[in-house]
């Protein structure tokens, strides 16, 4: 596989080596099988595949929400399978940002408070700095006027943009998005799509971030630098390089 010409050859921000995930029960089910996958700084990768192919399971493994049965997930070069739950949570908080299909915002909190939540959990910034940063991110996503609103006072597209803002709060190395447009109308999908592309473009400038999106949306997948197609828990075809 080849990377965009401008990308420097550095350590992948996130990488899996022979990752398999089997869930127990009377009949064990293999969610992902022997996946080798690496994402370089500045990359925007779309993971595609039919329903039940294991693309979301791969995302949860990459996001340290789940542990592989075998194999290893590396975040910024650091092996994670031997880390404690607390250490994995800390790594998730500082290095990874999630956007889910359903916005998953805390319903009693305002957009601003939702965005500040990861910052407050990390505890690196003071209250004023956190507020300023949250407002900046919301403004950059066109939500400056909605900062004080609760999720139930916003549209689906606005909520998803707040969820993206929350994912960006701690300036993560990797943004992981699971069907971010899956629950949105066409207009909102277009907005989210364009935000993702802008994020990817700005990441490519300083090669500081990577974006991984799991999607059915071919338009969104087409916006990515690279596509990885998963079928039955395995990478089905060589990665496709988008133009």
């Amino acid at each position: 596989m080849s990377l965009p010409a401008a990308a420097p050859l550095v350590r992948p921000l996130i990488e899996t080596r022979g990752v398999t995930r089997v869930i127990g029960g009377d009949i064990p089910t293999t969610l992902v099988a022997g996946i080798d996958f690496a994402v370089q700084p500045g990359e925007f990768v779309a993971v595609t595949g039919p329903s039940g192919s294991g693309k979301s399971s791969l995302l949860y493994l990459l996001g340290l929400l789940d542990k592989p049965t075998t194999g290893e997930v590396y975040v910024n070069g650091k092996a994670t399978s031997e880390l404690s739950e607390d250490a994995r949570a800390a790594l998730r908080l500082s290095s990874l940002g999630f956007v889910f299909q359903f916005h998953f915002l805390l319903p009693e909190f305002s957009a601003m408070d939702n965005v500040m939540l990861p910052m407050r959990a990390l505890g690196k910034l003071g209250d004023k700095e956190m507020k300023a940063r949250a407002l900046d991110i919301l403004a950059s996503l066109g939500l400056a006027d909605h900062a004080r609103k609760r999720p139930d006072q916003m549209s689906g597209g606005q909520r998803q943009r707040v969820a993206i803002a929350r994912a960006l709060a701690n300036d993560p190395l990797v943004i992981l998005a699971d069907e971010p447009t899956g629950n949105l109308d066409t207009v909102s999908s277009g907005q989210v799509l364009s935000i993702m592309r802008n994020l990817a473009d700005s990441s490519r400038v300083d090669y500081a971030k990577a974006i991984i999106i799991v999607t059915h949306d071919l338009d969104l997948a087409a916006k990515a630098d690279r596509r990885v197609h998963i079928v039955d828990g395995r990478i089905a075809a060589p990665a496709l390089q988008n133009d």
Binding site: G63, R92, L93, L96, F104, L106, L117, R166
Partner: peptide, 11 residues
């Protein structure tokens, strides 16, 4: 959600 964002169990 809180745990997926990185909040620890003790918190």
């Amino acid at each position: 959600i809180m745990k997926s964002l990185g909040m620890q169990a003790r918190t």
